[in-house]
Amino acid sequence: MPTIRVSANGEAALETRDVRVRYGNNEAIKGITMEIPRKRVVALIGPSGCGKSTLLRCFNRMNDLVPSAAVTGEVLFHGENLYADHVDPVEVRRRIGMVFQKPNPFPKSIYDNVAFGPRLYGRPPDLDDIVERSLRQAALWDEVKDRMNDNALGLSGGQQQRLCIARALAVTPEILLMDEPASALDPIASAKIEELIQQLVEHYTIVIVTHNMQQAARVSHYTAYLYIGELIEYDDTNTIFTAPHEKHTEDYVTGRFG
């Protein structure tokens, strides 16, 4: 039986109930039930193929975009199942944003990148304010404020990733999902992303998938360890990295796995 000790006590930003994901005949997620507490950072860790990115993508219906993927079970957001028939996946992705491993700015100006989402959802009169606020929240404003019309592809990798975070924040999500957001960055840029995560969690709930255990240990409040589609252990991060309850978790975090 998995060790699950995280209870959001009614303060869950997201709750999954027996979530299963199949790609054809292959069950990638084998019935995961967990709560993501509000305004906390939750790290999903586990070896390659354990299902952590698949699980992350269930949280904002990104798996819908994979034709062979079939999701069952429930993901509750404000008490509502995100997979219910009447739910609009585009609205889901606005309220639950995602940042990917490789920074993927649009080949447009810095301003247009951040303004893209708000424009899509209507043309707010205070667009300049939204762009500035989002860039400030993403700790990028001071570096780009004098060149807002420059092409975003001219930014460094770390700046591009913060721009992508600003772009996600511009549509005022409640939850940010991050799929290895720093793994393509150098240590300094990576440290800036980690610092940013710790600032953002004052206002947002963050779920981060990372291969880097030290990073999970540094930034998260709670850590979930997955193995071949199962949630093996989910507990506060101090416990996972100093005294995990499951032997399998211990073997993974000490590098004895395999």
Partner: peptide
């Protein structure tokens, strides 16, 4: 090594 869990202890 930045040890974890049992190794850290």
């Amino acid at each position: 090594r930045q040890p974890m869990a049992g190794d850290l202890r």
